[in-house]
Write a protein that binds this DNA or RNA. Structure first.
Lengths: 341, 341
DNA sequence: TTGTAAGCGTTATCAG
DNA sequence: CTGATAACGCTTACAA
């Protein structure tokens, strides 16, 4: 491994000069600079990150902690985070929690001294403990977490508002029996979407019925099962609103299995508007969430915090959603697909 | 930030002892050990990764370089890699290349001293340069790359075999006019799948027709466009085989738009068998690739290489695929979905 | 079983 | 503009 010393020796300068060339931390004469560059290039030198961060106490790395790495949703989050991080010259240390309860704490500890800040997505309601494992004052942005941890900058999707808008839309189409396929238990997004659903019912003057609220876990399979249960009710719903698109797609296939035409016999809607949504049959009405923008925005806030640790901005920011009407909800006028900017 | 010195002082021992407690590198008396642990715990100490790896020259981190972070495919790869890495106590430094041609080289350089080994996915055919940017002897596993770089351990999906099997299946169902929606240009997977397609035609005694091979780029949109073009031919194909599932799903929607029933009027098949495949309508016949297993296997090989740098195994390993028959190909007997173990 | 001290590859400080 | 040299936090001989 070629070090700064080798370069210095070969270029006939001191290590300090080589360092200065690489950091432009002080003026270096043009010809020395060129010579150093040339020698370094030829030797195949590049600075050793760990050594660098030992002295600067900056790693130029952001930690990303996700509950799981499954499906398009997380792929999109990482995509957004990666883009923003890369633009700022930062690396990404990614780790998933895989449901271990104390995993968060362990993950946090093992990342000490390896990251300058953290993006933590912990939609788990009981994960209030998150905060305690962190050195206080360590730059963190919380993604889609419950609001309890007021001590951290956080970013959430307008879950309740989106769900409410969807119910309003369905009610506006004349549906009186609107069911919900709920998300994973003890999941904040799921709870918020449920809250929005109920609120939407209320505003539309529709009664809340316990048999119209069945549990899912965000997977296609659970959506399928839940929809089958709903369709088998003595008085089945005329609209099924799933708390995410995967479940909605599962619901679509359940309708087929059950011999119900969508949207003629029953309307189906989802949440998230994953890319696939417009390609299923019928194209899925959904609540659009710009997931990669969520990741990018989280990253930007984290980077801001790193640049100016003094005036830390701990606000809770909400990312708006948009209703995207497609065929699956049977909008009376065959609405053209709404453009997402 | 609390360092090893603070712990040593507070526990009334030397830093060496604290270090030994954390590394079990030498015997420490039980009571000293307990005292150190207690003090460390109370002070909230955890070893500084960068400092550690500076002296040990091991980062306990693996670099993952992906061409892009889009869609379920990459999400699954990372998932597999993360699982295997986490089991072995390794971190993941993830980065995408975003199509910058010299991005690979830059990414590699910037990771120097931050990772112990690399998993590089560079399906780009012209990326033979990959190797040259790496310090020779650095542990690397290549994923889905062209075979030119014989100097590295590599892992590939049995693309050609899978495609060939699909064509054989379609021909077996009586199809004589089988078209291909190809993958991205200059992409190794895409080329291999095309090769398998042509080979399959040959073995089935079917002629290769230039108008039956249209280009795509692995996106739903391109699959949609390509299928429309195929269906508008004077003599349209009776089966459309897309080089991945996203494009196949695009093709399904194109068939609907064109008023063709799948599978009655035209058969459609994909490649990858992403989770979504079984939930589209009709359920998509595809070539199953265990993507997360691919990632996990790559990681295991890399870890092996790290543990025993001496006997390095540079073989090229091929991951088998399985044909998954679902409704979209119109298999004459409505075959039940084949179980994936 | 424990302590002392020499690095690991950088950057930062201070002279020149 | 450039060069010595002291950190940074840790591990690891070598001594005790």
């Amino acid at each position: 491994m070629v070090t700064i010393k080798d370069v210095a020796r070969a270029a006939g300068v001191s290590v300090a000069t080589v360092s200065r060339v690489y950091n432009s931390s002080a003026p270096v004469r043009q010809d020395t600079r060129d010579r150093v560059r040339a020698v370094a290039e030829q030797l195949g030198y590049s600075p050793h990150g760990a050594a660098r961060s030992l002295i600067t106490s900056r790693t130029h790395t952001l930690g990303v902690l996700l509950p799981d790495l499954y499906g398009e949703f997380f792929s999109e989050v990482i995509r957004g985070v990666d883009g923003a991080a890369q633009r700022a010259g930062y690396h990404l240390l990614v780790s998933s929690l895989r449901g271990e309860s104390h995993g968060l704490e362990a993950a946090l500890r093992s990342m000490r001294g390896r990251v300058d800040g953290l993006i933590v997505m912990s939609p788990d309601l009981d994960a209030g403990a998150a905060g305690r494992s962190l050195p206080s004052g360590f730059p963190v942005v919380l993604l889609n977490g419950p609001p309890s941890d007021a001590a951290y900058a956080s970013l959430v999707v307008a879950n309740a508002e989106g769900a409410q808008a969807m119910v309003a839309h369905l009610a506006g189409l004349g549906h009186r029996r609107i069911a919900l396929v709920g998300g994973a238990a003890r999941n904040y997004d799921a709870e918020e979407r449920r809250r929005g659903y109920r609120q939407g019912l209320g505003e539309a003057g529709l009664p809340w019925r316990p048999d119209y609220e069945v549990a899912g876990d965000f997977s296609e399979e659970s959506g399928h099962a839940a929809a089958l249960r709903l369709l088998s009710l003595p008085e089945p719903p005329t609209a099924i609103f799933a708390a995410n698109d995967c479940m909605a797609i599962g619901a679509l296939s359940a309708c087929r299995d059950h011999g119900r035409k969508v949207p003629d016999d029953v309307a189906v809607a989802g949440f998230d508007d994953i890319p696939m949504a417009r390609y299923v049959d019928p194209a899925l009405t959904s609540v659009h969430v710009d997931i990669s923008a969520l990741g990018a925005r989280a990253t930007e806030r984290l980077l801001d915090a790193l640049r100016a640790p003094a005036n830390r901005d701990l606000r809770r920011e909400t990312l708006a959603t948009t209703l995207v009407v497609r065929r699956s909800c049977g909008a009376l006028t065959p609405t053209p697909m709404r453009e997402i900017p």
